[in-house]
Design a protein around this nucleic acid. Sequence first.
DNA 1: GGATATAGTTAAGCCCGCTTAACTAAAAAG
DNA 2: CTTTTTAGTTAAGCGGGCTTAACTATATCC
Lengths: 150, 150
Amino acid sequence: MTDSVQFSQTLRQWVDIFMHRSMHDWARYVKAGGYSMPQFFLLMHLHRHEQCGISDLSERMDITSAAVSQLVDKLVQAGLLERAEDPHDRRARQVKLSLMGRAFIAQGNEKRYGWVDGMAEKLSAEEQAQITDALHLMLRAAQDLETDPV
Amino acid sequence: MTDSVQFSQTLRQWVDIFMHRSMHDWARYVKAGGYSMPQFFLLMHLHRHEQCGISDLSERMDITSAAVSQLVDKLVQAGLLERAEDPHDRRARQVKLSLMGRAFIAQGNEKRYGWVDGMAEKLSAEEQAQITDALHLMLRAAQDLETDPV
DNA sequence: GGATATAGTTAAGCCCGCTTAACTAAAAAG
DNA sequence: CTTTTTAGTTAAGCGGGCTTAACTATATCC
C-alpha cells in the first residue's frame, strides 16, 4: 500500500468519525436557536468568507439572488447579519456576520467541541505537538486547494 | 502558549474548514439529486442506524412521528427507502435504505472524498506519511475517549 | 449621452416540511 | 374481556424557502 492510499484511507476514516459527531449536533443547536438550515448555511458561508455580496452568496449557495436577498433580510432583522453598501459600487452590498452572528456560530462550536479538549487529555505533549504540525500541513493543503483546485 | 492550547486551536480550525466544506458538498449533491435536506438527514440516520421504526426516527430527528411518516412515504415512493411491517409487533414498521438509497449515500461520499484526494495532491509523500501518523494518534485518542470519557 | 449590463429588491405564487388533531389497528394492562 | 396505551397514518392548515418576473439604481460601453 502506498503512502498516498494510506493517507487517503486514514483521512477518510477520520472524516467519517468527525462527520458522525457533528452534523446531528449542529442541526439540534440551530433548531433550538429558532433558526432554519438554509439560514444556518448562509451564516456558515459568511463565517468562512467574511464579507460577501448577494450575488456572490447566490452562486455559492446555488439559489437565486432573490432568495438570498430575502434570507439575508430576515437574518439582518434577527440581528445576526449586517448589510452595508459597498463604497466602491453603490449597487452592491457587503454582507457580514454581526457580533451576535459570530457569537452564535462560536457558541455552537463550543458546545460541539468539548470532545476536542477531552481528546487532548488522552495525548502526551509530544503527540499533541506532532499532530499540531500535521494539522498545519493539512490546513495549508486545504487552502491551496481552495485557491487552486485540481 | 502551551502545546495543549495550540493543539486545541489548530484542531478546531481544521474542523471548521472541514465542516464547511463537507456540508457544502452534501447540500449541492442532495439538491442536484432533487432531494431536500430533511430527506437527506433521514437517509443519513438510516445509513447509521440500519433499521428504525417511525417513532425511533421521530425522537432522533426532533420532529413529530406524523412528519416522519410523511417524509418516509415520499422517500419510499422515490425508491430510496423500504418500509416493512415488524413481524413481532404488527403496529410497528421497519424502515431501512433500499439498494438505491444506499447507492445514493455511497455516491455522495465518493464525491466528498474527491476533496480528500485533491488535498493529497497538494502534499509531498513525506508530509502525507507525517499526517497519516498523526491521524492514527488522533483516531486512537478518539477511541480512548469513547470507551473512557473524561 | 444614450444603450446596455449588473447588483439588488419586491411581490406573487408554488411546494414542502411541520404541527395539530382525529383516526385505525394492535398490543398490554386490569 | 374490557380498558388503556402504543405505533403509525391521514388531513387541514400554517409558515418558510425558493422561483419567476417586474422593477430601481448604479455602473460600463460605444
